[in-house]
Computed example of a mutant assay.
Amino acid sequence: MTHTGLNSCHNKGNQKITQNIVTPTMCILFLYYLPHGSYYRLIVANNRDEVFERPTEPATFWKDHSDVLAGRDLKVNNGGTWFGITVGGRFSTVTNFVTPPSGLISKPKSKGHLVIIASKSYRDGHHLNGFSLLTADLSAENKDTSLAYTCNYDTDGARVLDPGVYGLGNSLLDNPWHKVKQGMEKFSNIVKSPDSTLTDQLFNLLSDCTKWPDPNIPNIGCNEEYNNNVSAIFMKPSRDQKGRLCGTRSQTVLLVSGDGDVTYTERSLQPSTAQWTTVSHTVTLKI
């Protein structure tokens, strides 16, 4: 899950348009990437906003890719994911880029495979609706160009990022919505003075329901409640234009120490009971 070949992922605009709304599901993440020699190398907090009925497997090591630790989207053939790390130190995560109706394609491929195949030269970005992809290579031999970003609607192409704090939602990395800006400020305060409550503080941040009205968030064609909920870091469950229950269905906190020790904590919301189920994995990277 590295960034090799990501320059070639741009949308060609050559697919037939059949939908009349922008992508309705959202996600948000906050990331702190540090150079070699730091106490932490990587800290990530992620909300997956999705249809609750979409079949998903909680985070675990995959049987068919034993080096991959990730949740799994079971609706996709052979399974894809939105967030994962390998024991070799490669991290990737993908979010939707809200695509205007003129940019939607009729039979897009799944974005869930991007995280798994980001280590390869991927040349089918034009078969996907809008996405943003962040990848990091924490292996010992890769000390300089370890963090990269690409979006198939960003004309600048893939680029290497400097160490620092980043926030990514459903717009371009350099043009964040208000909720991302507000979350980045809180995230930065948390991760730059970490203590034993770091994971709990990050889950509290991911559960912030404060709405940040933003003219840059397009009307996504749903009811007013749904559209309003989109403006918060934590998206409360609400019905989309098809009557499906959507919202923040899982949250993940990933901590990678300078020694390669990983703590991966994921919790998933059961909307019928409003209860969370939590899985946690610890592993030392082979780097």
Score class of each variant (00 low, 15 high):
2 T>F: 03
3 H>G: 15
3 H>L: 09
4 T>C: 06
5 G>W: 00
5 G>Q: 02
7 N>I: 00
8 S>V: 00
11 N>E: 09
12 K>G: 12
13 G>H: 06
14 N>V: 08
16 K>C: 11
20 N>V: 13
22 V>N: 05
23 T>E: 07
26 M>Y: 11
27 C>W: 02
28 I>K: 01
28 I>S: 00
33 Y>M: 14
35 P>I: 08
36 H>A: 15
36 H>G: 09
37 G>L: 03
38 S>K: 08
39 Y>N: 14
41 R>V: 04
42 L>M: 14
46 N>V: 09
47 N>K: 05
47 N>C: 03
47 N>P: 01
49 D>W: 02
49 D>F: 02
50 E>F: 08
52 F>R: 05
53 E>L: 13
53 E>M: 13
56 T>N: 09
57 E>A: 15
70 A>S: 14
71 G>S: 09
72 R>I: 06
73 D>M: 09
73 D>P: 07
76 V>N: 04
76 V>E: 11
77 N>R: 14
79 G>Q: 07
80 G>M: 02
82 W>Q: 04
83 F>W: 09
87 V>N: 15
88 G>P: 06
88 G>K: 14
89 G>N: 05
91 F>D: 04
91 F>M: 07
92 S>L: 03
93 T>V: 14
93 T>L: 10
98 V>H: 07
98 V>D: 07
99 T>C: 06
101 P>L: 03
102 S>K: 15
103 G>E: 12
108 P>E: 05
112 G>A: 08
112 G>R: 00
112 G>C: 01
113 H>N: 13
114 L>H: 02
115 V>F: 02
118 A>L: 07
119 S>V: 11
120 K>Q: 15
120 K>L: 11
122 Y>D: 12
126 H>S: 14
127 H>V: 03
127 H>R: 13
127 H>C: 11
128 L>N: 03
130 G>A: 08
130 G>V: 00
